[in-house]
Amino acid sequence: MKTWLKIFLAVIIIGIIGVVLVYKFVYNKPHTDYSTANAAYTLNVRELFDAYIASPDTAMKKYNGQIIELKGTPDKIEITDSLVIAVFVFKQGEFGDEGVRCTMLREYNEAAKKQKPGSIIRVKGYCTGFSGDVILEKCSILNP
């Protein structure tokens, strides 16, 4: 086989491998597994809510987009068509109860539903921000 042909084939093969790798690990990279990821902050539910009330801008910069571990006693477990949410209520506002809302990962829905009223739970999730409530999504229960 001629040398130029070998080089040409090698470039083609490397190119194909490169495209496959980019497709698999960049374009199609998986979502973060929030149940196994480490929390950037660990605090009580009330502390997190108070931080957003006291200084929304500072809290947003610190907590938005972070994985946070929280400890507290949910006031209710809200169940919708597709979501199970641990709700911690601290005040009343424009949209009714306001506090911290932790939406569970699907595999933790049943564990959340089984929480006994008044029992303390530890949850870990991805903080998407403050809309009257502090919102944590993709939550897992650390002591199911």
Binding site: N28, P30, H31, G65, E94, T128, G129, F130, S131
Partner: peptide
Amino acid sequence: FVFKVLMKSFEFEKALMQ
């Protein structure tokens, strides 16, 4: 009538798009 949406709460099929 009001609504408020957190942008980080939008979920995409692909992580890269999000």
